[in-house]
Computed example of a mutant assay.
Amino acid sequence: MTILGIDIGGSGVKGAPVDTVRGELLGERFRVPTPQPADVESVVDAVAEVAATFEGFDSVGVTFPGVVVDGVTRTAANVHKSWIDAPAAQLFTDRLGKPVTVLNDADAAGAAEVAFGAGRDESGLIMMVTLGTGIGTALFLDGVLLPNTELGHLELDGKDAELIASDRVREAEDLSWEKFAHRVSKYLRHVEMLLSPRLFIIGGGVSKKADKYFPLLEIRTPVVAATLLNNAGIIGAAVSAEQATTGRGGQHPGSIPVDASRPGTPGAAEAHSVNAGEAR
């Protein structure tokens, strides 16, 4: 079975076929710019353009920058409001002619990191934080995903946290690495106070520049950079799609538990430990 993973980001829609056992891309990924405005019709067209560059895939996993419940997109913080309550999984399935699973983008990236990357072999409460157009988050307890946390929207200094500490804000305000590290530290300390995670995994495009600001972070919890970089969402989406299509949810160590009777939906399933072997 060939699985295609597609990651919808704030600036680009990118995809590639994925080896879901090894957690690796099977070919060079293809990317198109995210449409502006990123309304339902335009984004579906962009996803179809990415998918059309690949042949022979059996199912597709698609990430979405918002809450996804039963294949329906419930929020749309960084895309057009037409996505609120849109039947995303059905829309993509109808357009691509293949089964499509849709899940939150940070959840997908986090699942890939827990199974194949920086969170491998880690137990307890692990938090993935993607610093990109916004702030995405994913929580894992002993390798099992707690979906749709959206903790990038916590209030910080009277504002939505992603309006203070995202990579988009760093670029827009031309922040020094020192100032950016101060803001990220403030956000992580707030989450630390609320949840006491054992590990933060920092993803998103800015994770490639971890050496610039990680040494400046002031936080008690260990912080590591995501190792799968911008491929994490693609890989996590493909793994989720395979589980939904085959009914093998939870069989990959560190995988996203999926209720196979409801494609497009991360569900609650039996916990599995993380021992398997490229962020928004």
Rank of each mutant, 00 (worst) to 15 (best):
Gly254Thr: 11
His182Arg: 15
Gly61Met: 04
Asp167Cys: 09
Ala89Val: 04
Pro33Thr: 09
Leu146Ser: 10
Glu28Cys: 00
Ala88Arg: 01
Leu194Trp: 00
His80Ser: 15
Asp70Ser: 14
Phe54Thr: 10
Leu25Phe: 00
Leu91Lys: 10
Leu229Asp: 11
Leu139Asp: 04
Asn230Glu: 12
Asn78Glu: 05
Ala118His: 06
Leu25Met: 07
Arg95Tyr: 03
Gly124Phe: 12
Arg29Tyr: 10
Gly66Phe: 09
Val100Lys: 07
Tyr187Val: 03
His252Ile: 15
Leu156Pro: 01
Arg248Trp: 05
Ala38Leu: 06
Asn78Cys: 06
Thr2Asn: 13
Leu163Ser: 13
Ser207Ile: 07
Gly203Val: 06
Asp7Gly: 05
Val223Ile: 13
Asp105Ser: 09
Thr73Met: 09
Met193Arg: 15
Thr265Asp: 11
Ala165Asn: 04
Asp160Phe: 01
Ala165Asp: 06
Ile6Met: 03
Val32Pro: 02
Gly56Met: 10
Leu91Trp: 06
Arg22Ile: 04
Ala210Met: 10
Thr93Ser: 12
Met127His: 01
Pro37Cys: 11
Glu24Gly: 09
Val62Asp: 00
Glu24Tyr: 00
Ala52Arg: 14
Ala238Phe: 06
Met193Thr: 15
His153Cys: 06
Glu55Thr: 14
Ser255Lys: 01
Asn78Val: 10
Ile8Arg: 07
Val62Ala: 11
Asp70Cys: 01
Glu192Gly: 15
Trp83Glu: 07
Ser166Trp: 03
Ala226Arg: 01
Asp167Ala: 15
Gly277Met: 13
Arg95Gly: 05
Glu178Tyr: 04
Ala86Thr: 11
Arg168Ser: 08
Phe180Arg: 02
Ala48His: 09
Leu131Met: 14
Asp7Trp: 02
Phe180Asn: 04
Val62Ser: 02
Pro222Gln: 13
Ile219Ser: 11
Gly66Asp: 08
Ala86Val: 07
Ser82Ala: 12
His272Asn: 13
Lys81Tyr: 00
Asn231Lys: 02
Leu154Asn: 09
Pro263His: 04
Glu173His: 04
Gly134Asp: 02
Thr265Arg: 08
Gln251Cys: 04
Leu229Thr: 10
Pro99Arg: 03
Arg189His: 00
Leu229Pro: 00
Asp160Gln: 13
Asp157Arg: 14
Asp58Ile: 03
Met128Cys: 00
Ala276Leu: 12
Pro215Thr: 10
Thr221Asp: 13
Asp45Cys: 02
Val60Ser: 08
Ala279Tyr: 04
Leu145Glu: 01
Leu103Glu: 12
Ser176Met: 01
Thr246Phe: 11
Glu113Pro: 02
Phe116Ser: 09
